[in-house]
């Protein structure tokens, strides 16, 4: 994609108020995640029992939790946890999905049939049920979380890429390459790859909020990111258990999740409208 095309996408994104709002939120969360150690006012792990359950104040903008830890600092570091997991997982899943999808779409018929059956079986597993099954076997933790997201996301990406590859495989310019004696590897890497990544990027960006939701949900159940590492999910759980003692805590703890999922979804929608309006939206989880 040329830089001119990129500028066009950016401009049409900014013209759409929803897309612009999404972009601003996403950039804010990215800065929060990258610069967490410098912008967080306190150490997110520092316990101070004398200061527990403080309401929002000038010293602690978002108040403190049941162990007296600064809530704002925990939320800022939680952004780091959420985004690093979401991006790692989406990156790996996108890469593997791309590879498998191109193999299925361009390889022999029997391999295609086998891979499609695998994708179908994987996507008939309810996502959260599958996640819980994997966690039971492997044990909870950040690595498991990424593994689960990668496994459940691959079929969707692979199917998308497979469909793209199939429709491109019989295009004239590919036939011409083949007639001229180009190897399959060359055709896949040089000609198919650049043409199939576009839709994948949009779908990946639209899946980031789903991954953030899953990470928070599983961490909420204490089956995801392990405490004391701050995650928006376990912060929310801390708030939930102190619902009556400090209701402000749970109210504030839910906000980053709401804003981040809104931001990424709006940005994804905006990107899709700007690049490929016909792409299908996902089913809510």
């Amino acid at each position: 994609m040329s830089s001119g095309a990129n500028r066009g996408i950016f401009r049409s994104l900014m013209r759409d108020p929803m897309g612009a709002f999404g972009l601003i939120l996403v950039v804010a969360f990215l800065i929060m995640a990258l610069a967490a150690p410098w912008i967080a006012p306190y150490d997110p792990l520092k316990i101070s029992i004398t200061e527990r359950f403080q309401p929002p104040s000038l010293a602690h903008w978002a108040g403190t939790d049941q162990l007296g830890r600064d809530l704002l600092s925990r939320i800022i570091f939680g952004a780091r946890t959420a985004l690093s997991i979401a991006m790692t997982a989406a990156g790996i899943a996108g890469g593997v999905g791309l590879l498998l999808g191109m193999i299925a779409g361009y390889g022999p018929r029997w391999l295609d049939a086998f891979l499609v059956l695998m994708f179908d079986s994987m996507s008939s597993l309810p996502m959260i049920m599958f996640a819980l099954a994997v966690i039971t076997v492997v044990g909870p933790g950040t690595g498991t979380l990424i593994l689960v997201v990668v496994l459940v996301s691959i079929p969707g990406y692979a199917r998308l890429i497979r469909a793209q590859t199939l429709s491109l495989g019989s295009a004239d310019f590919i036939l011409a390459e083949r007639v001229m004696g180009a190897s399959s590897a060359r055709i896949l890497a040089r000609h198919l790859l650049p043409n199939v990544v576009g839709p994948l990027v949009i779908v990946l960006s639209m899946d980031i909020p789903v991954i953030i939701m899953l990470e928070a949900g599983l961490s909420y159940l204490n089956l995801g990111v392990r405490p004391p590492i701050p995650s928006w999910g376990n912060i929310l759980y801390d708030g939930y258990t102190s619902l009556r003692a400090a209701p402000s805590m749970v109210l504030i703890a839910g906000l980053p999740l709401v804003l981040a999922t809104l931001g990424f979804t709006f940005l994804g929608e905006g990107l899709r409208d700007a690049i490929d309006p016909k792409l299908k939206v996902r089913v809510p989880r």
């Binding site: 929803m18 909020p209 939701m213 928070a216 949900g217 909420y220 929310l236 708030g239 939930y240 619902l243 009556r244 209701p247 749970v250 109210l251 839910g254 999740l257 709401v258 999922t261 809104l262 990424f264 979804t265 709006f266 929608e269 939206v281 809510p284």
Partner: peptide
Amino acid sequence: VLSVGLISIPAFVIAIYALLIFAV
């Protein structure tokens, strides 16, 4: 815009807010 917003917010966050407001 409302539809997209409703789709994206995690159900369990809404559950906790609803619990706090309507039950507690």
